[in-house]
Design a binder for these strands. Sequence first.
RNA 1: GGUCUCGUGGCCGAGUGGCUAGGCAGCGGUCUGCAAAACCGCGUACAGCGGUUCGAAUCCGCUCGAGACCUCCA
Length: 488
Amino acid sequence: MENKLRLFNSLSRKKEDFKPLTDGHVGMYVCGPTVYGDPHLGHARPGITFDIVFRYLQHIGYKVRYVRNITDVGHLENDADHGEDKIAKKARLEELEPMEIVQYYTNRYHAFMNALNVLPPSIEPHASGHIIEQMEIIDKIFENGYAYEADGSVYFDVEKYNKKHPYGILSGRNIEEMLANTRELDGQDEKRKPYDFALWKKAAPEHIMRWKSKWSDGFPGWHLECSAMGAKYLGETFDIHGGGMDLLFPHHESEIAQSMAANEKMPVNYWMHNNMITINGQKMGKSLGNFITLEEFFTGNHDMLEQAYSPMTIRFFILQAHYRGTVDFSNEALQGAGKAYERLIKAFGRLDDINPAEAGDLDMEKLRNSCYDAMNDDFNTPILIAHLFDAVKFINAAADGKTTMSDEQKNALQNIRKDFIVDILGLDLETSETVGGSGLNDVMDILLDVRKKLKEEKNYAMSDFIRDELSAKGVTIKDTKDGTSWEM
RNA sequence: GGUCUCGUGGCCGAGUGGCUAGGCAGCGGUCUGCAAAACCGCGUACAGCGGUUCGAAUCCGCUCGAGACCUCCA
């Protein structure tokens, strides 16, 4: 298959032709959630963004190994020496085992990602299951002279590393600036420099998540897990590493430093970062407390939500913006996305009932190529969707008898539906409005039959009564030349 | 304060040195007993001020505004 895929590499800050290390194979690692709370809209963004990457790479013929981790240890509340582990803190507050917290929120995360039609990754490793691998990296970093120990904790010597390799290569900073601008935090006395980061932390006596090591009973630093698990499952250098833009520094920067310090190899060829979802122009984030959970979106149970929004509406909303731009949440925008999504799905749903005739005025090959061009240009889903709406107009016009469609065109559109809407965008062809209960169909047929007779008798009062009453129950009646249809 | 990004019509959002995405909402029309849906048509937007250019929303400079990262955050 011809491969013209270009993607924006955060490392070079340019779009580059995509060339995997091994022909036909792609290794991709994406930073997954820290499972100490319910997933919110912000978590849906990387989930969906890299789901698209995963789906598209497979669609164009690659065998993809997609690793998305679960962070269940080592992620501290802050970077001070005495910061508390997020999982451990939640466990203490809820009086549960840390692994109960981890399991509970991992299950929740899976359920919500599944609802959003996000495919599960090939491998989903837990940080806590790779303590030994993380220790081995620390050993290597020690051997190469880029780590130092202080009271049972181990830190990465950024200054020394920077003499040989640029620390800041990914995020575009330099060490002098960082030194000048790093804020003073409490309890950083163990670190030689404020920008040094922990590879291993000695656990305080009350800390329940702890592992034995040659340095102390403790736990690994946050950045280490991705270096360890990425290398383990994808190799010391792999193709794509993804995550949210907010992880670019210091998390990914430190990942590069650790891997270089341990292996003298750049761990990743292409870095991809999705932008943030904003709310009132500001980043939706845990620390800001301005997040709305996915469950709240699905149920509508939140002060800022005017209604519930279906998972597919959320997915479509996110796909209508390019992944590197911010996307601003608002009820108006979400409602618009919901309507657009339904129009798209309904139109493609009408396709199968169209009787082929003369070819109409839409170039299928051009359309299909345009769809591929959009995706090949750094996964430009909004452009892809715009092209799909060209097809929507054509299908609706043909279904209304205002133009005609050839058998070839019909087949081409059915293929586009399968390839782009279902396989690549991962949208569900069933919307809430197109799903009808099977037993209900017969009853509705009777009811509509009665209404038809009433209309023939020009008893519009009664026929409208039926329509209005059904409408009140969420059933919409549509009269067309070919008869009456209904949807819930 | 440092580094960086962005500012597009009522709203959301692509794009880009000349061929004026798309969606939602709105208006007019077709269809209909009426409505809904669908279809057709319409609004000529690119923060402001300068500059480069035959030509800029797109390049450059300045001003204003917003945001991200620099601490945990997807």
